[in-house]
Simulated scan of single mutants.
Amino acid sequence: MSAYIAACYPGRVEMVSDGASFDFDGKIEAMRSKITPSDLLPLAVVGVGVVGDIALLKVAVLEATQACSTVDEVIERLHTDLPRVERRSTPSSITIVAFSESSGGQIWEYNNERKTLRPYWDSHAIGPELSMDEMRASGADITQSLREGGVRLLEAMRRKPCQPVQEVPFGHYVGGHIDWCVVDKNGVRIERVHEWPDVVGEKIEVA
């Protein structure tokens, strides 16, 4: 399971993501940054689902940034390239945040079961679903930035037990750390803004 939130703001797109991946017993398998930036264009990508399938989709995105000179060209190319990536396991998806030369901040999602790349105009979130009451209780304010409010929302998602897929037990699947990503005309910046005391090989325990 992954949890991440992306939102467009004037002159930029922001994203926060957790950093833990899990095995089929619900134990933490690894902790790493899930946000992969392009070195060439103002674009970054994150995924949820099967690690191997996400990696293949990310490769397709990065190859497109190498073959194209603008974000707009990359997105146009990915409508064709991503459906060609063969799915090897249960459904996975990626979310792309980018700063377009023609239209500014963009959020796109690709699902390898649906095989379509679709836009989200203002925001997009993946993770344990929060009710309006739970979002208000978190104290999160994301009107100006995800830097602090996004952390509060991921903390609330972490506390909410879920079963991401049938193959894993009911439990907590948001962990490791939180990375905050900003994408604007100047490129991609990623900062580690929160860490949890989680341990590889163990399940997440929430007090």
Score class of each variant (00 low, 15 high):
Cys162Asn: 13
Thr116Ser: 11
Asp18Tyr: 03
Ile142Asn: 05
Ser100Gly: 07
Tyr110Met: 06
Asp184Glu: 06
Leu43Ser: 07
Asp72Ile: 05
Trp121Asn: 12
Ala44Lys: 02
Ile142Thr: 15
Glu155Ala: 11
Ile204Asn: 03
Ile28Ala: 08
Phe99Leu: 00
Ile142Ala: 04
Val51Lys: 03
Pro128Ile: 11
Asp198Met: 02
Glu29Pro: 01
Arg12Pro: 02
Ile28Tyr: 03
Gly105Phe: 01
Met135Asn: 00
Gly187Val: 09
Val165Cys: 09
Val165Trp: 11
Ala64Asn: 05
Met1Ile: 02
Glu129Leu: 15
Ala6Pro: 09
Glu29Ile: 01
Gly52Leu: 10
Lys34Asn: 10
Val206Met: 11
Gly52Trp: 04
Gly201Leu: 07
Gly104Ile: 14
Glu14Leu: 02
Met15His: 06
Asp25Thr: 03
Asp23Ser: 12
His194Val: 02
Arg136Pro: 01
Val151Lys: 11
Trp196Tyr: 15
Gly104Leu: 04
Val16Arg: 02
Val74Tyr: 00
Lys160Pro: 01
Gly139Phe: 01
Ala44Asp: 08
Lys185Tyr: 01
Ala60Trp: 12
Met1Leu: 10
Tyr9Arg: 04
Pro91Ala: 13
Gln166Cys: 03
Ser100Val: 05
Ser100Ala: 00
Arg159Met: 07
Pro42Cys: 10
Val199Cys: 10
Ser145Ala: 11
Leu41Pro: 11
Ser138Gly: 04
Ala44Cys: 06
Asp141Pro: 01
Ile5Leu: 15
Val61Gly: 01
Asp81Cys: 05
Glu76Trp: 01
Cys162Phe: 12
Leu57Cys: 04
Gln144Cys: 06
Tyr9Gly: 00
Val13Trp: 11
Met157Glu: 15
Thr70Arg: 15
